[in-house]
Design a protein around this nucleic acid. Structure first.
Length: 213
DNA sequence: ATCCCGAGGG
DNA sequence: CCCTCTGGAT
């Protein structure tokens, strides 16, 4: 078994991925922290493409937390139905908007502690909002980050929080947010969950598995 | 550990 | 049919 990846090796992989995917960034369409928060809540177990299809009409109908807090849940469900889990998500969005009004004067808070206290917001969603709306460093560990970092031999953990605790100390703070984007992009394009395209992987030489899913 | 849930791909 | 998609709450 290979040793756990070093900071130098991890940065080398990230640099190659950055060269391979210069367009890597947050793929959700949004304008401002609140729209990003809503889009990220909707992105649970759903492609970003599917989220982007519904957020246009959604934000036209409910342009701010005040409007969404007073939304009819059935109407909201219909607007977000195609993203899946629509009953949970609709209830969470209404409760979340209400919580923003009650606790934060209708603004999206910039602290992890406050974000994860919002309905429907877990640590992964909070990290996405912090990193992409407020430029606060964080590693958002989703299904792609978990799978790719596992295959690269960067971690043996499976719990997202432990993966975060395992990887972050070995990476410079300023690379955390981009690391999420790069690993997600690579996970979608090449290092897919099923039938990964190892034959065309730019970091194959740095992967301990060298081709096995 | 289990549930929520639609859409897309193989 | 199967698996997977930028999870979260119970």
């Amino acid at each position: 078994m290979p040793e756990k990846a070093t900071t130098r090796q991890m940065i080398r992989v990230l640099e190659i991925l950055a060269d391979t995917y210069p367009e890597a960034r947050c793929a959700l369409h949004f304008d401002g922290p609140w729209q990003l928060l809503v889009a990220t809540i909707l992105s649970a177990q759903c492609t970003d493409r599917q989220v982007n299809l519904v957020t246009g009409p959604l934000f036209q109908r409910f342009p701010n937390p005040d409007a969404m807090a007073g939304a009819d849940q059935g109407e909201l469900e219909n607007l977000i139905r195609s993203t899946g889990f629509f009953r949970n998500k609709a209830a969470n969005l209404i409760a979340c908007a209400a919580a923003l009004l009650q606790r934060h004067a209708g603004q999206v808070p910039e602290r992890m502690e406050d974000l994860v206290a919002l309905p429907g917001v877990g640590r992964k969603t909070a990290n996405v909002v912090l990193g992409n709306a407020f430029s606060v460093p964080g590693l958002a560990v989703d299904t792609h980050v978990r799978r790719v970092s596992w295959r690269l031999g960067w971690t043996k953990q499976t719990d997202p929080v432990r993966i975060e605790q395992d990887l972050c100390p070995r990476l410079p703070t300023e690379r955390w947010t981009m690391a999420s984007h790069l690993l997600i992009h690579h996970g979608r394009a090449i290092c897919r969950a099923s039938r990964p395209a190892c034959h065309s992987c730019p970091v194959l030489a740095l992967c301990p598995r060298t081709g096995v899913a």
